[in-house]
C-alpha cells in the first residue's frame, strides 16, 4: 500500500467530493420537487397526465441509470449538430457540460422512484381526513396544501434516508460522462500513478463516512418533526 499520492492529489479529491455532494443535493431536491406532482397526478390526475406519469415511472424504474445517462449525454449529443444556432445560444454553456446531464439523469431517476413512493403516500392518507377537510369548506387546493400533502410527506420522510444513500451510490456513474466527481478524481489518479486499489479504498471510506453523516442527519431531522401518535 502506497499513500504518497494523497499529498499530490488532495485538491482534486476535495473538489471531487464537492462535486459529488452538489450532484447529490441537486438531484435529491429537484427530484423530490418533481416527484410530488408525479405522485399526485397518478392518484387524482386526468388520464392524459396519469398515464404519462405512470409510463415515466415504469421506464425509469425498469432501465439501468447508466443507460439513461448515456442516452441523454451521447444520444442528445448526436442531435446537436442538426440544430442550427444551438452552439451560439445561451443554453450552450450548460448543454456542453457533462455535469448538467448527470444532474438531469439523477433528478429524473429520483423523480421516477420517489414518484412511485409519493403515489403510495398520497393513497395512504386516510380518506376520512380528506373528507373532513372538504366538509369544513376547504377548496381542493387548500385540502392539498394543508392536509393531503403534509400528511403524505410525513409518511415519506422515513424512506428519504435510504433513498438519499441509494442516490449517493449512483453518483459515481457521472464520471463516465466526463464529470470530475470523487470517482473522476480517482480515475485521474489511476491514470497518473497506475495505483488502483488505494484510491478506490480511499473513496470507499469517504462514501461510508458520507453515508454515516447522512444517516445521522436524517435521524436528527426526524426528531425535529413533531409526530403525534
Amino acid at each position: 500500500m502506497v499513500w504518497d499520492w494523497l499529498f499530490t492529489y488532495w485538491p482534486q479529491l476535495l473538489y471531487g467530493l464537492w462535486i459529488t455532494l452538489v450532484l447529490l443535493f441537486l438531484s435529491m431536491t429537484l427530484g423530490m420537487m418533481l416527484a410530488v406532482p408525479i405522485g399526485l397526478v397518478q392518484v387524482t390526475g386526468p388520464w392524459w397526465l396519469k398515464y404519462p406519469a405512470r409510463g415515466f415511472c415504469t421506464f425509469i424504474r425498469g432501465t439501468p441509470l447508466l443507460i439513461q445517462l448515456w442516452l441523454m449525454y451521447y444520444g442528445l449529443g448526436q442531435i446537436f449538430p442538426m440544430i442550427p444556432g444551438l452552439r451560439h445560444s445561451f443554453l450552450w454553456p450548460v448543454l456542453r457540460e457533462g455535469f448538467f446531464y448527470a444532474v438531469l439523469a439523477f433528478t429524473l431517476s429520483t423523480a421516477g422512484y420517489e414518484g412511485e413512493v409519493m403515489r403510495g403516500a398520497f393513497l395512504g392518507v386516510p380518506r376520512g381526513e380528506l373528507e373532513a377537510a372538504r366538509a369544513i369548506g376547504m377548496s381542493p387546493w387548500q385540502v392539498l396544501r394543508r392536509v393531503w400533502l403534509p400528511r403524505a410527506l410525513r409518511q415519506v420522510l422515513p424512506t428519504l434516508n435510504g433513498e438519499t444513500i441509494l442516490q449517493l451510490k449512483s453518483t459515481p456513474l457521472a464520471y463516465t460522462v466526463t464529470v470530475m466527481d470523487l470517482m473522476g478524481a480517482t480515475s485521474m489518479i489511476r491514470q497518473d500513478t497506475y495505483r488502483i486499489y488505494e484510491p478506490l479504498i480511499f473513496i470507499a471510506v469517504i462514501y461510508m463516512v458520507i453515508t454515516f453523516i447522512i444517516t445521522k442527519g436524517f435521524a436528527w431531522a426526524e426528531r425535529q418533526v413533531p409526530v403525534k401518535r
Binding site: 451521447y74 449529443g77 449538430p81 444551438l86 452552439r87 456542453r96 466526463t178
Partner: peptide, 18 residues
C-alpha cells in the same frame, strides 16, 4: 481537458461540439 473512457466518445463530443 475532458477525458473519456474510449476514444469514440471523445470523437462523438467533438461532433456534438462539446
Amino acid at each position: 481537458v475532458k477525458t473519456y473512457g474510449t476514444e469514440d466518445e471523445a470523437k462523438a463530443d467533438l461532433a456534438a461540439g462539446r
